[in-house]
């Protein structure tokens, strides 16, 4: 497998990993992971807890360095880069546990993100007066959090924090958005609606997404493709229909969700 396509004509995949390996103590969290993520699709990652899904996102974004193996972004080797340099190349991330500025309001978290995206040029301009304010209010609206715009993050519910966390990542206008269990903590009555809007917004902005998800209903409805993780590697990959009807998946993954 090479980064330049076999025929040499098509573009390399948006993100590609080759033979990622990492161990934590006795646990092999990434066991020879080779993945290709094509632009323009929504890839769901499913699999039991401890399978190495978060570790995969950590390696792709440079937070954890693999013991061996490489990560390519459109053919460029980004393995040695720190997260911030990968982010600046267009890869944003939302976290399993929201990573927000807890002393700031929901809106301020977004404004900070927009300001970071634009480069911090004017050191004497009020954060609240930056040009992107309306755009950020729109993003808040998108994740149904307009009513808590001026609330300090520590006061928000877990579901709201998750949504703000996603909005903060979206505010960076990424090409690729990695989301770790985006709807966990979000009220089940809201999950589908939020995902619907999110996926719509991603498609509209041309953002490719990868999301770790435990809710098979969400996967079935919003993923273009599914990768099944197990014991540190991709066990299966296919369309949602293929995967969700696969006997191994029904036994190992869905069975566990039900149990």
């Amino acid at each position: 497998m090479t980064a330049t396509n076999k025929a040499g004509t098509a573009k390399p995949p948006l993100l590609e990993t080759r033979e990622l390996m990492i161990k934590f103590g006795g646990v092999t969290a990434a066991n020879n992971v080779s993945m290709q993520i094509e632009a323009g699709r929504n890839l769901a990652i499913i699999g039991p807890n401890g399978a190495g899904k978060t570790t995969f996102l950590n390696i792709c974004t440079g937070w954890i360095k693999p013991r061996s193996g490489k990560v390519f972004l459109e053919g460029e080797d980004i393995t040695p880069l720190p997260p911030r340099k990968i982010v600046r190349r267009g890869v944003a991330r939302a976290f399993q546990i929201p990573q927000l500025f807890t002393e700031h309001t929901a809106l301020e978290n977004l404004l900070i993100s927009a300001a970071a995206r634009e480069g911090l040029r004017n050191p004497l301009q009020n954060l609240h007066n930056i040009r992107q304010r309306d755009e950020m209010m729109h993003l808040l609206d998108l994740v149904h959090c307009t009513d808590v715009a001026d609330r300090v993050v520590v006061e928000l519910s877990e579901g709201q924090r998750k949504l703000i966390d996603i909005a903060v990542a979206l505010a960076l206008k990424p090409r690729l958005l990695l989301m770790d269990e985006p709807t966990s903590g979000v009220a089940s009555s809201q999950k589908h609606e939020v995902m619907e809007i999110l996926v719509g917004a991603l498609a509209e902005a041309g953002v490719t997404s990868v999301f770790v998800e435990h809710d098979m209903g969400i996967v079935a409805r919003h993923a273009d493709e599914v990768a099944v993780w197990n014991a540190g590697n991709v066990q299966l990959r296919g369309t949602p229909q293929e995967i969700l009807e696969h006997p191994d998946v029904i036994r190992d993954v869905i069975g566990e969700e039900v149990a």
Binding site: P83, R84, V87, A92, Q99, L100, F101, R117, L172
Partner: peptide
């Protein structure tokens, strides 16, 4: 949150 800072680029 320095993690988020890093992930804002």
């Amino acid at each position: 949150n320095e993690t988020r800072l890093e992930y804002l680029g």
